Simulated assay, not measured.
Amino acid sequence: MAEAGQGGVEKPLYVGHRGRLRERFLAAPESLPDYELLELLLFLAHSRTDVKPLAKKLLARFGTFAEVINATPEDLRRTDGVGDAAVAALKTVQVAAVRLLQGQVMNQPVLGSWDRVLEYCHARLDGQRTEQVRLLFLDSRNRLIADEMQQQGTINHAPIYPREVVRRALELHAAAVILVHNHPSGDPTPSAADQDMTLQVRDGLRAVGIALHDHLVIARGGHVSFRAQGLF
Score class of each variant (00 low, 15 high):
Ala4Phe: 14
Glu10Ser: 02
Leu13Gln: 12
Arg18Gly: 10
Leu21Lys: 09
Arg24Ser: 08
Arg24Thr: 10
Phe25Tyr: 12
Phe25Met: 09
Leu26Gly: 13
Leu26Tyr: 14
Ala27Gln: 13
Glu30Asn: 05
Glu30Thr: 07
Tyr35Val: 07
Glu36Lys: 04
Ala45His: 07
Asp50Ile: 09
Pro53Leu: 01
Lys56Tyr: 09
Leu59Ala: 06
Ala60Gly: 11
Ala60Asn: 12
Arg61Phe: 01
Arg61Cys: 02
Glu67Pro: 10
Asp75Tyr: 00
Arg77Gln: 14
Arg78Cys: 07
Arg78Met: 08
Arg78His: 04
Asp80Trp: 14
Gly81Lys: 08
Val82Gly: 04
Gly83Asn: 00
Ala85Asp: 06
Ala89Gly: 06
Ala89Cys: 07
Leu90Arg: 06
Gln94Met: 03
Val95Pro: 06
Gln102Leu: 12
Gly103Asp: 12
Gly103Val: 06
Gln104Arg: 12
Met106Val: 05
Met106Gly: 03
Met106Gln: 10
Trp114Thr: 00
Asp115Cys: 00
Arg116Lys: 10
Val117Gly: 05
Val117Glu: 02
Glu119His: 13
Tyr120Met: 07
His122Ile: 00
His122Pro: 00
Arg129Thr: 13
Arg129Glu: 14
Leu136Tyr: 09
Phe137Ser: 08
Ser140Ile: 15
Arg143Ala: 02
Leu144Val: 05
Asp147Asn: 15
Asp147Phe: 12
Asp147Ser: 15
Met149Thr: 05
Gly153Thr: 10
Gly153Asn: 08
Asn156Met: 14
His157Gln: 06
Arg163Glu: 15
Glu164Asn: 15
Arg167Tyr: 14
Arg168Lys: 15
Arg168Cys: 12
Glu171Met: 14
Glu171Lys: 12
Val180Ala: 08
Pro184Cys: 06
Gln195Pro: 08
Val201Tyr: 07
Leu205Ile: 03
Leu205Met: 08
Arg206Thr: 04
Gly209Tyr: 09
His215Tyr: 13
Ala219His: 11
Gly222Asp: 02
His223Met: 09
Val224Phe: 11
Phe226Lys: 00
Phe232Thr: 10
Phe232Met: 11
Phe232Val: 10
